[in-house]
């Protein structure tokens, strides 16, 4: 199964983690590159996700006359669930696809082979800095995106339902509890690692010339989304059970 192979690939990367120091310059370059490229996507995704969800919740709460709690509800709902998934979907496209295309075209132009022949381990040289850069950026951007989505929701609701930001922010503390934050952060970290792994694996394993590169990007996009959804389900289930056991809400 693909998942097993990818997990094995992950162990190979982790084993080489101490060697990151040697390739630190490449890591810094990659990190800056990925972060800058994805910033606008993250902000856009964040704003619109927050805004759309705010709108939807507003419509539903209107029936109950409970609009006043929109702030808290939207924030909680967004950062716990839908926010991480949707923003991660966007990032999987931007960040993941790009890196797997890069690694893929390096594979089909024999760069990876050439480096091997000169006595250098291609995973340390090519994959390690990129994986770390992608994973780290993804995590940071996801968190950033979630923050933006809260703001996006706030602005949308202000413009559309006339609910003042102050009121919005008040209800956040009532409803967006610690559990929401833990859930959001855990998901960001796990999604980030998954994205890094999937895009590097597919890029590195590209076969079949220029067409193969397109295939790799497609596989990365699809696998990332499926992995994110499954991981989301797993994390939610596990953490909810843990919270219930601990008596938190």
């Amino acid at each position: 199964m693909i998942a097993a192979q990818q997990f094995q690939f992950l162990t190979q990367i982790v084993k080489r983690m101490p060697l990151l120091w040697r390739e630190r310059r490449e890591f810094q370059l990659q990190f800056a590159d990925v972060a800058i490229r994805s910033l606008s996507t993250t902000i856009t995704a964040g704003i619109f996700t927050g805004a759309v969800l705010a709108l939807q919740f507003h419509l539903q709460l209107k029936d109950f006359g409970a609009e006043s709690v929109l702030g808290g509800l939207n924030t909680s709902g967004t950062i716990r669930e839908v926010g991480p998934i949707l923003i991660a979907f966007m990032l999987a496209g931007k960040v993941g696809a790009y890196t797997s295309a890069e690694l893929g075209s390096m594979k089909v132009t024999d760069q990876i082979q050439a480096v091997r022949c000169l006595g250098i381990d291609p995973i340390t040289f090519f994959v390690l800095p990129r994986f770390c850069a992608v994973a780290l950026t993804a995590v940071l951007l996801l968190v950033f995106g979630l923050v933006i989505s809260v703001l996006g929701g706030m602005v949308a609701v202000w413009g559309i339902a006339d609910i003042h930001p102050d009121q919005y922010l008040l209800t956040i503390s009532r409803f967006a509890s610690n559990t929401s934050l833990i859930l959001a952060t855990t998901k960001s970290v796990v999604f980030g690692i998954l994205m890094g792994l999937i895009c590097c694996y597919n890029g590195y394993q590209t076969e079949g010339g220029t067409f193969g590169v397109g295939e790799s990007v497609r596989k990365t996009a699809v696998q990332s989304m499926v992995a994110i959804v499954i991981a989301d389900f797993a994390i939610t289930s596990i953490l909810e059970t843990v919270f219930r056991w601990l008596g938190w809400s």
């Binding site: 490449e26 132009t109 050439a114």
Partner: peptide
């Protein structure tokens, strides 16, 4: 080995 494509590391 000198490859058919130059295989220089572009990055």
């Amino acid at each position: 080995l000198v490859f058919q494509l130059p295989a220089l590391v572009d990055s």
